[in-house]
Amino acid sequence: MADLEYLRAFLAIYRSGSVTKAAAYVHLSQPAVSGQLKSLEQQIGRTLFNRTPRGIVPTAAAHDLARSIAPHIDALESAGDSGAHGSEIEGTVQIGGPVEFLTQRVLPTLAPLVRLGLHLRVVLGETEQLLEAISKNDLDLAIVGQHKKVRNIDSELLYHEELVLVAAPSWLNHIPRKGEISVRHLDGIPLLVYSEEMPQVQEFWESVFEVEPDTRPGVIVSNLRALMTMAIAGAGMTVLPRYYCDLELRNGDLLELVEPRTPPASRLMLASTSRSQRIPRNRVVRDALLRAKVQW
């Protein structure tokens, strides 16, 4: 059986996509974590990561191992590190945020606490309505976009959301194979957006091309899964958070149309009030999320 510490280090690498981030999470040096990974690969007789110019990529064996051990490692860490005894997590925590980030990052992180007896009530929404709910004490915690200071609400950085412009490989013939890509090279590729305001597209265009987008959207749908599915089907291009489409990029279902040296990013914040943080179960959830962000 593989050593528990090796498995813990492997899971940290798998989730963060970085030995450096994993080392910070497990409080070891980078060489020590690399050594643990090598020992684990020798024990199980499988290669778990392929090294590429863009970083480490999990193998099929890594995906299988992560699926089998993650629930058990998470439960052990939540029980031990957070000191989450029954009395501390008794009751219900009301948490809100964008559906995609909650689904991909937040709720899987909190699953071990649910197994220990925590009750969750989840509200899906946009930043303004979530902040209003926090201020009225209708929510205990919320994941929100970067915002102006709101009285009585404390916000902590939870995640840097890197944005990528993606499309199906079938659009490759519409852009140059070499040289820098400009806005004019994207003419003729339909734009798939989340809303009429196109906030992520606006941010990407202004950051990368230094202009505002002037293309009329081909599709508007307020769901990242729908946008990604349409992009994969060849409907056009869209701007997505990298965490949301990383697997599809690695599999070749999508390609990055532009790869800026400094990718644009938005910040996601963990919002709460001092009143809510006086409740032990809310502090346990907050601490679990702030620990997990190292792996994200």
Rank of each mutant, 00 (worst) to 15 (best):
G234T: 11
I134T: 07
S16T: 10
T229D: 15
R286I: 01
M237S: 07
L107W: 01
A22M: 02
L249Q: 07
R105N: 03
D74W: 02
L48S: 05
P108M: 03
V284F: 02
A168E: 04
I181K: 13
I73T: 04
V284I: 15
L28T: 10
A22S: 11
V19K: 14
L254E: 05
H174D: 08
Q42P: 00
P112A: 06
T229R: 14
T52M: 13
R291N: 04
D214K: 13
E90P: 00
S195H: 08
V258W: 08
L191S: 14
R51A: 05
S68Q: 14
H85W: 03
I232K: 14
L40C: 05
L289S: 09
S68I: 08
P263I: 00
L102A: 07
D74V: 09
L255A: 03
T52D: 06
A292C: 01
P53N: 04
Y6M: 11
E5Y: 04
A60K: 07
E90G: 05
L7G: 09
R291H: 05
D81N: 08
L247V: 08
E259T: 15
V144K: 02
V221F: 08
V211K: 14
L65S: 00
S170H: 10
D64K: 12
S78H: 05
Q42M: 10
P199C: 04
E210F: 10
V106R: 01
E203N: 06
Q202H: 12
I56E: 04
L4G: 01
I143Y: 01
D287K: 08
L172R: 13
H27L: 12
K136H: 12
N173R: 15
V221S: 11
R177V: 15
I189N: 10
L120K: 14
V33W: 01
G117A: 10
T215W: 02
L102H: 05
K21N: 12
R250F: 00
E212P: 05
R283D: 12
V294Y: 10
N152K: 13
Q42G: 06
S29P: 02
V294P: 00
G252L: 01
L172H: 06
S276T: 12
S78F: 00
L28V: 08
P53A: 03
S274A: 13
Y14G: 12
Y159Q: 08
L157M: 11
A60N: 04
R151N: 11
L120R: 07
L102I: 05
T92L: 09
F49H: 00
L40P: 02
S182I: 06
Y194K: 15
G252K: 00
T238S: 09
D253H: 12
E128A: 14
A167E: 06
V211H: 14
A23M: 01
Q200R: 14
L270I: 07
K293Y: 04
